[in-house]
Every structure is written in structure tokens, then in C-alpha cells.
Design a protein around this nucleic acid. Structure first.
Lengths: 337, 337
DNA sequence: CTGTTAGCGCATTCAG
DNA sequence: CTGAATGCGCTAACAG
């Protein structure tokens, strides 16, 4: 495998000149540059990323931490988000390591930095009050939380405005006449899930709608838990006339259960989801939901992280993006009893 | 950030001794070892993975190449497979870079090796006759193809026995009385899709079942294409009485379309999928399918790759695993007309 | 059992 | 404009 010295010999220059050519240093005589270029091509030379990383003290790699790899990866929303993250990293020339939060280095994320494996991390779906996040901040390791929040000084966050999402739907559903509005929460250890639930409670109270424990079902983001939510709500008397699911996946599970139990959506129960995953447009009825600005979330997260990696002392930024309602066919006026 | 020399100073030894302690070299006096250990902990020292990689000429990183990141990642089957791959890598202490086949280095995968970024790659869903694969073999870059096949000397493959899968279903369906058995193919540029189609054609001919162009719908693995497949088959006269979908995702799309068009499964049409994704147990009716030995596929792929990385001259191995039928409720006897 | 020397491939610094 | 020296942090090979 050819190194700079090999190229240098062939081109009759010092390896330093080769280095300059490779890095586009302008102060190389065009003639020399061309000679070097030819040697590079002839030897099929490519810079050794590891040697470069050692020298520059930058791995040019970021870590994408997923708490529960198996589970989280199968969320269509997450997988698309990852796609956009990877894409956004390319112009910055960073690579992306996928790490399961539970597995390797499950205890201490700062290890990744101490070992110099990554220059920064993006964390998806972190638990609330995860002590590992605090450790990252304490070490000033560039970190961005996605769909989560933290007040730590060196941990940035990118999230959607969960309060507005819920508020929008509460308004929308009350405008249709609904008052008994139920809620399916996500995995409650995750902040996003918590915020949505919190927003639900706040909005419901603010509008003096019935707020009861049994109107809240604690799911875990999976369609299976949406299915169970239906079973639970279907037993209530009076039954809720509308349901807000914390993500589309659960809404789809709910839809399925409703179908199996001959409960019509939206005639009997109105239903909304959050995310606008691809499948939301293909359910029966088509799902009314809230489109997350995935691509923006991904690019903002990457830009924020790159900024933090290039300037370690930059204080954390907290960016809240707005979601956009997508009204389809899963909501209707409150049924006349 | 502490280095070996820092530790060495504190422990009053040479950095070489520190290196030995870190690497568990037995020939260090226990007393000295302990002193070094304490210094390591006091300074919170961790070996620099990059320096180590440069020296050992091994990045301890593999690349997972996904042809179409956005699309492929959202396949539940794939995301679980990735989970298992990550898990299988941990005991070997390798990290995993996720790379989109289309993006970065889209043209030349050997670049990843020339740059020393990875020691090996696992390629998921490669196109058939992808020239990049040939280049990998020519350079003897350790590579494993998953759900694909190649006869190249230095490219190993791990796949399921597609022929047996199809044959099983053909037998199963003919035993139920079906003769007009239709087929929904996957993205035909992918070898797995091609093999399944090929197996379908071979089995159908062998059993003298009707084989017509219109009984084959070329999908692309997505549930949307399964939906379209239904639309297509539903127009045929006579309509096929059974359908084999090349994956569960398409089968689910088919199911949905059938429901919307008041065609009953399995009363009117029998349907089978392949993969046994989680959702297959939750559809209405529950989907009869073929369970892929995901975990085995992942671990075999990892072991194969690790073997190839540790012995570059090892010839490629071609491993074919068997899938296991999961009979649920989506098939029935041929309807009496 | 421990230390010295050398070098992995590159880029920064300073000379020419 | 180009080259020589130096070091990033670590380990392999050889000395002691």
C-alpha cells in the first residue's frame, strides 16, 4: 500500500510536497503539482485516514448512539432520520459509527472520546436524567441530543415543539366537538414521551376537558402497544371519542385493533398520530398526523455537532423545530349518541 | 488527555511497561503492574484507539454498506439484522460504520480500505454484478455479502436457501389445491429477489403449474408495491388463488389492498410472505411466512468476516442457511367456484 | 522483568 | 516554493 513517501520518490520530491498536494496547499508550483498528481494516480495512493487522524487529533468520525438498537432502528421514523443524518455528514466528511447504547460502552459514553474513536456523538432517544449525558457535558464532549432535552452546559438539543403538537391536536379535536380525548404515551423513560404527556395534561386542564388516569395509556412506541391501548380504551364507559397517539406506529396498532373489534375510525373514534411516517398515508382510513421536519432535524443536528466539534468551548444550543399538521381521514365530528 | 508517557511518569516506569500492562502482557512484576494500574486510574487513562490502529495496521472497524440507506433501514427485517450484527461484533471488539452505498465512496468501496478506515465490510442487498464487489475481491479486501451471492474468490456470502423457501410454499399451496399461484418479486436488481423469482419459475414448471408472465409482479420490497401487486392480480381472469410475496412487507401491502377491495384472505386468495417480521403476527389474518434465521445470519456473517480479516488469504466461504416455515392464518384451501 | 530504539503515515513548524 | 526535523500515541523487536 503506497504511502506519501512512495509517491514522493516516484515524483522526485519530498513527501512534504506530496502532503501539500494532497491537502490542496496553494503554494506548490503547478508543474510540480502535476507531477505529484500523476505519481499519486500511478501508485493508486490514498491518504491513510488513521495516520491523519492521529496527527490532526481528529477521528473525523461521529457516534450515533441508539438506546435500544433493535427496537429503535425498526421505527420507520428513526431509520429515515438516520438516513438524513448520514447524508448531512457527507459534506463535512465525517463517518458515522452506530453504537447501541445498551451494549458496548453502555455505561460510559465518554470512553468513546477518551479512546479518540469519535469527535462527537448524536444521541437518539436518550433516557431522561441519564447520568452518562451529564458525564459527556462535564468532559465537554461535543454531544447533541435528538428528540430529548437537557440543560447541561455542553450538551445541545434538537427537538420538535411537543407542546405545540399536542395543543394543535387538542384544539383540532375540540373544534370537532370532542371532549373525552384519550392519550397514548410513548416509552415514559424518554423525554419526548414525557413532554407529550405533559403537554396533553396541561392542554386538557387548560380547556377544562375531562382528565382522568384511565384516559392515559402508557405505551412504548410500538404498534403492539397501540393495539393494547385500544383494548384498554374500548372498555371505558363512557368511551373516549378521540385518541391522540404519541407516534404513528402506535396509532396504526390502534387502527388495527379497532378494525378487528368493529369500531369504526373516524365514525366511532377519531384518531391522530405523530411523525407522518410513510405508512400513515396508506392506512385505512389515512392517518391524520403531524409531520416531523425530519430532514431539518437531521441537518440542524449535524450542523450543531460539527460546530461544537470545531469549537469545543461553544456553549450548547437548544433548538426547537415546529411540526406541521397533515390532516387526512382519521378524524371526524363527535358521534351522536 | 493522559497518554502512556504520563502514566509512565506517575508510576515511575517506562511507557513500555504501561503498554504491557494495558495489553495484559504477563511478564510484568505484579507489584509494578499494580502501581501502573493505580496510575492509570488516577489519570483516567484510556488507550488511544487511533494510535493503536496506526501501529497495528488495523482500524478495528468494519463497514456496513447499505445500498439505499433510507429505504433499506426502514425494513424491519434489516433493522433487526443490523442489531444482531452489532451485537455479534462486540466480543470481537469491532466497531461498525454505517455507510450508504449510494453516497460517500459510492463508486469505489475499496477506497474505504485504501484509506484504512475499515478492516472489512458487510454488504447488505448488493446489486447483482456490482462491479464494486469485483474490485473488493481483486484487492482481497475482506468482504461478506448478506442475502446475495457471488463467485468471486475473496468475497464470502451468507444467505438463506431461497430455493427451498419457494419450493416449500409451492408444495404447501398445491397441497391446499392451488394451481394458479402468483408471485410478487423484490427489487429485481438484487440477487435474493432474482433467486426467489427463479426458484418460483423452476418449481412451477417442475410441477406443471400454469406459468404466465402476468402471474409475476415485479415489486421493490415495499408494502406499497405489495399493494400494487394486488391491484394487478385482482384484474386477472382467472384470478390467481394464491400469492407468494418475496417478503412480508409486500405481503402486508397486499393484505391491505385486498381488504380495501373486499377480497378475503384466505377465503378468496391465499397469501404467504417471507421474513417473519414482527408485524406478521399482528396482521389480519396473521401472516403465514418463512422465518429467516436472523441471528444466525448475523453471527455467521460476523464470524466469517472476522476470520477473513485475521487471515487475508483465506478463501471465500459460501454459507446457505435454512429458513423455517411459520404457518399462520393467511392460507386456506382453494375456493370452490 | 524492564527499558531503548525505531517506525506506523501524516502534518506542523521552521529553514532554506 | 520546497525540504528537514519533529511529534501525534502506540507497539514490535531487541537489549539489558
Amino acid at each position: 500500500m503506497a504511502s506519501q513517501s512512495d509517491v514522493a520518490k516516484l515524483a522526485n520530491v519530498s513527501f512534504m510536497t506530496v502532503s501539500r498536494v494532497v491537502n490542496g496547499d496553494p503554494r506548490v508550483k503547478p508543474e510540480t503539482r502535476e507531477r505529484v498528481q500523476r505519481a499519486i494516480e500511478e501508485l493508486n495512493y490514498y491518504p491513510n485516514a488513521i495516520a491523519r487522524a492521529l496527527n490532526r487529533q481528529r477521528a473525523m468520525t461521529i457516534g450515533l448512539i441508539l438506546q435500544k438498537l433493535d427496537y429503535v432502528l425498526s421505527e420507520p421514523y428513526i431509520s429515515h432520520l438516520i438516513y438524513h443524518i448520514e447524508k448531512a455528514l457527507i459534506p463535512h466528511d465525517y463517518d458515522m459509527l452506530i453504537l447501541s447504547g445498551e451494549h458496548r460502552n453502555g455505561r460510559d459514553l465518554t470512553l468513546l472520546f477518551k479512546q479518540k474513536k469519535v469527535d462527537g456523538v448524536i444521541i437518539l432517544g436518550s433516557q431522561m436524567d441519564d447520568p452518562r449525558i451529564a458525564a459527556l457535558s462535564a468532559n465537554r464532549n461535543p454531544s447533541v441530543l435528538l428528540h430529548a432535552h437537557s440543560d447541561l452546559p455542553f450538551v445541545s438539543c434538537v427537538d420538535v415543539d411537543n407542546y405545540s403538537i399536542i395543543e394543535y391536536f387538542i384544539d383540532y379535536l375540540t373544534a370537532l366537538g370532542h371532549r373525552r380525548i384519550a392519550f397514548i404515551g410513548g416509552d415514559s423513560s424518554v423525554l419526548d414521551a414525557y413532554q407529550r404527556l405533559d403537554a396533553y395534561a396541561a392542554c386538557v386542564k387548560k380547556r377544562c376537558l375531562p382528565f382522568e388516569q384511565e384516559l392515559v395509556f402508557r405505551g412504548n412506541w410500538s404498534s403492539g402497544s397501540g393495539y393494547e391501548a385500544f383494548l384498554h380504551f374500548n372498555e371505558l364507559r363512557p368511551r373516549p371519542s378521540a385518541v391522540i397517539a404519541s407516534n404513528d406506529h402506535m396509532a396504526i396498532g390502534f387502527l388495527k385493533a379497532a378494525y378487528e373489534h368493529q369500531v369504526r375510525i373516524p365514525e366511532d373514534i377519531s384518531l391522530v398520530g405523530i411523525d407522518d411516517i410513510e405508512m400513515a398515508a396508506f392506512t385505512t382510513p389515512k392517518l391524520t398526523t403531524m409531520r416531523q421536519p425530519m430532514q431539518t432535524i437531521a441537518s440542524v443536528a449535524v450542523e450543531t455537532l460539527v460546530g461544537a466539534m470545531e469549537n469545543r468551548d461553544k456553549p450548547a444550543s437548544h433548538i426547537i423545530l415546529q411540526a406541521e399538521p397533515v390532516i387526512r381521514d382519521s378524524c371526524g365530528p363527535i358521534p351522536k349518541v
